[in-house]
Design a protein around this nucleic acid. Sequence first.
DNA 1: AACGGGAATGAAAATCATTTTCATTTGTGG
DNA 2: CCACAAATGAAAATGATTTTCATTCCCGTT
Lengths: 121, 121
Amino acid sequence: MSRSNPRVLSTLERAGGFASAQEVYRLMQREGERIGLTTVYRSLQSLVNDKIVDVLRRDDGEAIYRLCGEAHHHHLVCKSCGDTVEIEGGAIEKWAKVMAEEHGFREVGHTAEIFGLCAKC
Amino acid sequence: MSRSNPRVLSTLERAGGFASAQEVYRLMQREGERIGLTTVYRSLQSLVNDKIVDVLRRDDGEAIYRLCGEAHHHHLVCKSCGDTVEIEGGAIEKWAKVMAEEHGFREVGHTAEIFGLCAKC
DNA sequence: AACGGGAATGAAAATCATTTTCATTTGTGG
DNA sequence: CCACAAATGAAAATGATTTTCATTCCCGTT
């Protein structure tokens, strides 16, 4: 079993704590790192195993990774121009926790995105 | 744009309301239906557009479809066994509306899912 | 019944993320 | 310096999903 390449983790951190394997890879390429896609995948898997990062799924099925415990935020996305605003989601955290408890769920995480038309569009 | 093939919906119902496109296809084949995989995908997509079925993701990223009971709800999904509970999201509706207004967004929609380990797992 | 046009169909090819294979490189202890 | 295990990555394999495109089906009109 391979161990995680530290540069992958540091790139994920720099990405704002939310990126797919492909995105991490592209980011590293753009920054001149010499690394293979395979290693990126392996490192992310290993980080997930070690519970250092969480894995979620985008609507299109692509896996996205983010640092565990990192203060996470949500997104307000314009469906026309793609402009994105990071928003705070205290209400969601509470809602998720309550709902989970109510149904006996443990180790809960959540996703939440709002989309619409921004002021410009 | 194509409309849904009714046999796809009836097969999904018979499947217990929880199946991937591939599974629906295999099921129909096994039952002697003459249908193409493409049509299964197209029908399911169309059913999702019409909000007649919901689409979720398995841990491996495969999309699973099932009949949608109510109007608008959210999901509490077990990441181990895939068990799903439909939950009410009044708090989310309000949150989404407030956040959108705050940033000048119009025509907003949202997605929100909670995932964790259910009581059994 | 023959015709025409648009919708529906599906086989095959294309796409895309992810995994596997396998040969090569690297690092470390002896 | 050597041997050997771990790490790496290019390329091929996999598997779901989408696209392409030629064919078939349906339906109203002549």
